[in-house]
Amino acid sequence: MKQLIDTLQSKQAIVLLIVFLTLAIAPLFIKNDFYLDGFILIFLWGAFASAWNILSGYAGMVSLCHNAFFGIGAYTSTLLFLHYGLTPWLGMFVGGLLAACVGLALGVVCFRLRSHYFALATLAFGEVSHIVAMTWRSLTEGAEGLALPIQPSLYNVSFSGKLPYVYMGLFLFLALIAVSYAIEHSRLGYYLTAFRENEDAARALGVKTGRVRLLAMAISSFASAIIGTFYAQYFVYIDPSSVIRIQISIQVALFAIVGGLGTVLGPAIGAIIFIPITILLRAKLGTTLPGLHMVIYGAILILVLLYMPKGIYGTLKQRGFKIFEKPRKNLAPLRSEIEVSSRQ
């Protein structure tokens, strides 16, 4: 707590606070649904990218199956509502738990797999989940998708205006940032980083890497599923290609990488940058130049990875722009090697 208070006194934290307050208050004054929609998308994808970042950024395990977790969340709450009338407020936790179980099962099954092999396994799993959603028609209606009835009520998590969705989105967005902050500043975050950097060394230092990985997997998949439910509630229609396509995983990865892998704010910043670009390109180009925005995305992804691997926020942080760290006292210039050794 003391750390948090210290943190909040720093200059950058004030900047941050202003940004958040703007995000919180601005929607009240925006009457244009187009912009509100933009806010909702930023929050949704920012939160989702943060969830991906917990597993892939902090723990360094490249997941290409977050579309599966997202889809599990969207489908579970929607199906529970359509068939049993269960409120999505509860349905989303059922979906979250289900996704976490699937994530854990996948983690256990793939426990031996490292690096490329883990990524390939998740890719296969992401694809299989898409195929299952397409072919298990009796449950998912296949490619036709599922529509939620538009009956605004709190119980149905359905509202007539966009504003409630904006605030739900904002809540998720901030919640995921808070979770990332909590992880980064806890034992778990240290252990995940150690695992990412060098598993053998981590184990030699007593880090239970197996357990730590599974925990990251569970948190990440749980959060992704909750966001999936939010997606379903907002768009009131889901089908395999909108919630369970492999491209979804790539997209969240893109946001997180460009924003800053393994950082608290990076994924959110990625979404804040990319969503408006996407919306603009779509609005300007419409269908005249299909795929142009994907070309731009791909190019940015490559450029960032090759020339700014820490991403936007990671690079800012490195240059001394620190929000979540105490301002450091200036250290004396490093003494030369010999001096250091002769001191002993």
């Binding site: 150690a194 950097e197 060098n198 060394a201 030699a204 007593g206 880090v207 239970k208």
Partner: peptide, 21 residues
Amino acid sequence: NPETICALGLCRTFQIAKPFG
């Protein structure tokens, strides 16, 4: 496994240093 052994109070270093880079 190594993590349990470390908890018991036996630790090792690596020949090729493996810093968390």
